[in-house]
Computed example of a mutant assay.
Amino acid sequence: MMRLTFKKQRGLSLVEFMIAGVIGLILILGLTQIFVSNRQAFDTTAASADVQETGRMAVEILAKGVRNADYWGCVDNNNVFNNLDNTALGYDEDTLGFGSGLDGADDNTDASDGIVDGTDFIFIRGTRGSSDIQIDEPMPNSSAVLDVTTANDLAVGDVVAVSNCQGGDIFQITALPSGDKLQHNTGATLFPGNGKNSGTCSGGGGGSNCLSQLYDKGASVLVPYSERYFIGTGVSGEPALFMRRGILGGASVGSGQTIELVEGVEDMQILYGEDTSGDGTVSAYRAASAVGDMNDVLSVRASLLVRSRQLNVLDSPQVLTFNGAAVDGSDRRLRRVYTMTSTIRNRM
């Protein structure tokens, strides 16, 4: 009877070891490729979501600001008289002027203002309030004291506006006499103070404390605001949409507070829809420098260039044109352009 004998395996030959090594290397390279591809897809998806969220928020903020601009109660800005003293030292026309509910500038070139060069910025002004504070008693003359329904939310130094359907006045509260009253004396006790009126007042009274008219019961007391939206450099070093809010109350009246709103907005270009024919429709969209009269602007069109926070998201530089020029995509960030058009509802 034949017996079969088997030799025991005493190790791997060099050939077998090399074959196993090659197979293992192929597997590792395959897994690495899958990992890299998944990571690239994840980064691209995250960057896309980031850009979309940034663009949506920035557009929403600007659209809301434009939509609510130039509100002065039931009267337009042309009939609102600014009583603030524009001769006061340090008076800032941008913050305290209220000459127009809307203003802007093209292609910033001032390297010292914190605004990215080459970008546009826009001023939005108006008043806010729900008419909760109203004139409580008709003004018998143009005295410096107004009777109101409540003064609980107001303080000495606050800049306010009183408005009816014939006109309005902007002034600074200089005192709050007892009995829910607002006082608006002239003089230099506060900055900027009041003092633009002179001459004989309607209904009698001292000329230096005149308002532009006598206000009857029911006239609204509103809170003015002044905001500038622009592109600056955020705390992280990334470009961002900013708002500079004029301070119109407290100890810092006339100064501004700069607030970073949305990170990742690289550029902003703005066109203004001007009604040149007076028919209540937009005749053409123009840059700020080409607008004849900002008071004739009915809508605003803003284009935003938004970029991802992450570098090297894309496999190759993105080809993109913004404002008629090619965008440098050598950092391989993901970029998108968002455009919004919003009407100024208080002018329609």
Results as ranks from 00 to 15, higher is better:
Thr281His: 04
Gly104Ile: 10
Asp132Tyr: 04
Gly250Cys: 04
Ile23Leu: 06
Pro192Gln: 03
Leu298Ile: 05
Ala58Lys: 05
Thr5Gly: 06
Ala288Cys: 09
Asp110Trp: 09
Leu304Phe: 06
Val116Asn: 08
Gly205Asp: 03
Phe191Arg: 12
Gln310Arg: 14
Arg228Gly: 03
Tyr285Phe: 12
Arg3Tyr: 15
Asn209Arg: 04
Glu227Thr: 12
Glu274Ile: 01
Gln183Gly: 04
Lys181Ala: 09
Ala49Cys: 07
Arg125His: 07
Ala284Gln: 10
Val262Trp: 03
Tyr91Ile: 06
Ser283Glu: 08
Phe230Ser: 05
Ser289Asn: 05
Asp106Glu: 13
Thr54Gln: 08
Leu261Tyr: 01
Ile344Gly: 03
Thr341Val: 09
Ser142Ile: 03
Gln269Val: 15
Gly205Ile: 00
Asn141Gly: 07
Ile133Pro: 00
Val221Met: 04
Gly167Cys: 07
Ala284Tyr: 05
Glu137Gly: 05
Val59His: 02
Val156Ile: 06
Ser130Leu: 13
Val297Thr: 04
Gly167Thr: 04
Val265Ala: 00
Gly280Ile: 11
Ser303Gln: 02
Asp103Cys: 11
Val297Ser: 00
Asp43Val: 08
Asn86Cys: 07
Asp50Met: 04
Ser255Val: 14
Ala63Ser: 15
Ala175Arg: 06
Ala46Ser: 10
Ile270Thr: 05
Ser198Trp: 14
Asn86Thr: 07
Ile259Thr: 10
Leu211Ser: 01
Gln310Asn: 14
Met243Ala: 05
Lys64Pro: 07
Gly104Met: 06
Gln52Phe: 10
Val66His: 03
Asn312Pro: 05
Arg67Gln: 06
Pro140Arg: 13
Asn194Arg: 02
Asp117Thr: 15
Ala47Cys: 08
Leu214His: 02
Leu320Cys: 02
Asp296Pro: 09
Asp103Glu: 14
Asn78Cys: 14
Asn209Asp: 06
Asp85Ile: 13
Gly203Ser: 03
Phe230Asn: 02
Phe123Asp: 04
Ile135His: 00
Leu214Cys: 09
Asp132Gln: 15
Pro239Asn: 06
Asp103Pro: 04
Ile344Ser: 05
Arg56Gln: 13
